[in-house]
Design a protein around this nucleic acid. Structure first.
Length: 290
DNA sequence: AAGATTGTTGCTTA
DNA sequence: TTAAGCAACAATCT
């Protein structure tokens, strides 16, 4: 389940290889996941050059010449893999049968491949098992509107203690739900919310407005810390996530509570609990987190 | 074999 | 009016 660190890893990988490349062909393979007709995708995208890849929360925004914007949201099981013509996968690793196996569904394209964009130099495969993910083309006015809906970016210069603390004032919801709300803070998902709360020794069920200033500060620092560390490890692999090279992330071994139900807390030895909160599986240490 | 899995939306409720 | 809560979606795994 790609969250901010995973999406950022993919963004960096792909930008390195796709920058200023020209679109030669587009193949729409699933009309539910890829919004718009094949004809429209051809008309809009062919011959455009990629200027940059941006990220907003968990959303990837491919910026092309002539104010063309391609939005890709990976949701639960989406995957992007770049494969170069000269038998390389993005990242410079020699192409081999083994690296092909990294794609969900095996060699590319396969039945999970929903979109193929052929650039000068290689093909970008957009795969998704569960068909929650989407790709769509957006114009400049919609771009602004959509971007405005997102809350603070935790790794940007806008992520200041004061603005973070203002989110808690009068908020009657659980701190877990608050952190998952993309309109308030962008990019956190179930894994990193649970991890941040554990590191901050805060019970996920607490009402947001009841957190002390010091608790808010701890959370602020730990969100930053856990996201940066996860990016440095190229993300967490749980089920289907792979980076832009088709490799798994290495943060999984750093997880303290997510997926650890029944295991001992590293700090106090208490058994990690799992409950349902804000509609999500929620992992925490009942002794450390108050 | 039913229930869990999660990101987001849109509807209902308070 | 605004926010909080929750079902729904999709497909696979346990």
């Amino acid at each position: 389940m790609p969250e901010l660190p995973e999406v950022e890893t993919i963004r960096r990988d792909l930008e390195k290889f796709l920058l200023s490349k020209k679109v030669k062909a587009v193949e729409v393979r699933d009309a539910k996941v890829v919004i718009g007709s094949q004809k429209k995708w051809n008309e809009v995208l062919i011959s455009r050059n990629l200027k940059e890849i941006q990220r907003k929360g968990k959303l990837l925004i491919f910026v092309f010449t002539k104010d063309i914007y391609l939005f890709i949201h990976l949701k639960m099981t989406g995957q992007l893999i770049y494969q170069e013509k000269n038998r390389l996968i993005a990242g410079g690793h020699p192409f081999s049968e083994k690296s092909e196996e990294k794609a969900i569904g095996g060699s590319l394209p396969n039945k999970f491949t929903r979109l193929i964009i052929t650039f000068s130099g290689g093909k970008l495969f957009f795969n998704d098992i569960r068909r929650f993910a989407y790709a769509k083309l957006i114009d400049k006015s919609d771009l602004k509107k959509i971007k405005e809906k997102f809350g603070i970016e935790p790794l940007s210069s806008d992520f200041k203690l004061k603005s973070f603390q203002s989110l808690f004032k009068d908020r009657n919801t659980s701190v877990k739900a608050l952190l998952l709300n993309q309109a308030l803070i962008a990019g956190l998902g179930n894994i990193y919310v649970d991890e941040s709360l554990y590191l901050s020794a805060i019970d996920p069920r607490r009402r947001a407005k009841d957190l002390s200033e010091n608790e808010q500060k701890k959370l602020f620092l730990n969100i930053s810390k856990v996201l940066k560390k996860a990016i440095s490890k190229r993300g967490t692999t749980f089920s289907n996530y792979t980076d832009g090279r088709g490799n798994k992330g290495n943060f999984s071994s750093e997880l303290k509570v997510y997926g650890k139900k029944g295991e001992k807390c590293e700090i106090c030895g208490e058994i990690i609990e799992k409950i349902k909160l804000a509609g999500r599986g929620t992992h925490f240490c009942p002794k450390c987190q108050k």
